[in-house]
Simulated scan of single mutants.
Amino acid sequence: MKQLNPLDMKNLFTPATTAELTRRIDALRPDTKQLWGKMNAAQMLAHCNVIYEMAFEDKHPKPNAFKRFILKMLLKNSVVNETPYKRNGMTAPQLKISNDKDFGAEKDRLIQYIRQTEAFGAAHFEGLESHSFGPLTSQEWNNMFYKHLDHHLSQFGV
């Protein structure tokens, strides 16, 4: 997959990107079929919410120092760079969603997280500690959030 120019990466800290993502999420229905992968639409929304839970809430245990070092060395760059995710990639265990989820509740939560990200703005995220990778720049946070959302919304054709 080709690497995007950082100038082409959508900016999650702007109203235009929030509106675009909200429109795409609103186009989803509980019965929207995935183009690849195993999750249904409600599970995908819940999966996307976990990334925000790790950023905004103290809900998930942090990896120990050794595991964080390994994650930082092996995965950080591929998660925070501008290269889109490949289809059917590996998913971290804490991000796997296999049980039933409430589509409406997960959809509302995700839209709230996206709006909260915009409201906080880039300055809030500059140097903010990531759950798994240590401090990230606001551009790295933006890349991680946006390309993850774009990947999964594309997975469902929206």
Rank of each mutant, 00 (worst) to 15 (best):
Ala55Cys: 05
Val50Ile: 14
Lys33Ala: 15
Ala55Asp: 04
Ile25Val: 10
Ala27Val: 04
His60Trp: 11
Gln43Ala: 12
Arg24Asp: 04
Arg29Lys: 15
Phe56Val: 09
Gln43Val: 11
Asp26Cys: 10
Thr32Ser: 07
Asn49Gly: 09
Leu28Ala: 00
Met54Asn: 10
Pro61Arg: 10
Thr32Ala: 01
Trp36Leu: 01
Lys33His: 09
Met39Thr: 13
Gln34Val: 05
Lys62Ser: 14
Arg23Asp: 08
Thr18Cys: 10
Gln34Met: 12
Lys33Val: 11
Ile51Met: 14
Asp58Phe: 15
Asp26Ala: 06
Glu20Pro: 02
Ala46Asn: 11
Ala46Pro: 05
Arg24Glu: 09
Arg29Trp: 00
Leu35Cys: 08
Asp31Ala: 12
Pro61Trp: 07
Gln34Trp: 00
Phe56Thr: 08
Gly37Asp: 11
Glu53Leu: 13
Arg24Thr: 03
Gln34Ile: 09
Glu53Tyr: 10
Pro63Trp: 15
Lys33Asn: 08
Glu57Trp: 05
Pro63Asn: 14
Arg23Ile: 00
Leu28Gly: 00
Glu20Asp: 14
Gly37Cys: 04
Gly37Tyr: 08
Lys38His: 07
Gln43Pro: 06
Ala27Gln: 14
Ile51Glu: 06
Leu21Met: 13
Glu57Arg: 10
Ala42Lys: 02
Ile25Asn: 02
Thr22Pro: 00
Gln34Asp: 03
Asp31Leu: 07
Met54Trp: 08
Ala19Cys: 05
Pro30Gln: 02
Ala42Asp: 01
Asn40Gly: 06
Asp31Tyr: 07
Glu57Gln: 13
Thr22Asn: 03
Lys62His: 15
Pro63Ala: 15
Glu20Lys: 06
Leu28Arg: 00
Asp26Glu: 12
Ala19His: 13
Asn49Ser: 11
Ala46Ser: 13
Cys48Val: 07
Asn49Tyr: 05
Ala19Gly: 03
Thr22Met: 01
Asn40Ser: 09
Met54Ala: 14
Gln34Thr: 11
Asp31Arg: 07
Pro63Ile: 14
Asp26Phe: 01
Asp58His: 15
Glu53Phe: 03
His60Phe: 14
Asp26Trp: 05
Asp58Met: 12
Ile25His: 02
Arg24His: 10
Gln43Asn: 13
Leu21Ser: 01
Ala27Thr: 09
Tyr52Asn: 07
Glu20Ser: 08
Ala55Gly: 01
His60Ala: 03
Ala55Ser: 09
Glu20Trp: 02
Asn49Met: 08
Leu35Asp: 01
Pro30Phe: 05
Ala41Phe: 12
Phe56Trp: 10
Arg23Ser: 11
Ala46Arg: 14
Glu20Thr: 08
Lys33Asp: 13
Asp58Trp: 12
Pro63Tyr: 15
Pro63Lys: 15
Ile51Phe: 07
Gly37Glu: 13
Thr22Gln: 08
Phe56Asp: 07
Thr32Arg: 02
Arg29Gly: 09
Lys33Ile: 13
Asn49Trp: 09
Met54Cys: 12
Met54Leu: 15
Lys38Asp: 15
Lys38Thr: 14
Ala27Lys: 12
Thr18Trp: 04
Tyr52Gln: 02
Lys62Phe: 11
Glu53Arg: 03
Leu35Phe: 04
Leu28Lys: 00
Met39Ile: 06
Glu20Met: 05
Arg23Gly: 04
Arg29Pro: 00
Trp36Gly: 02
Asp26Leu: 09
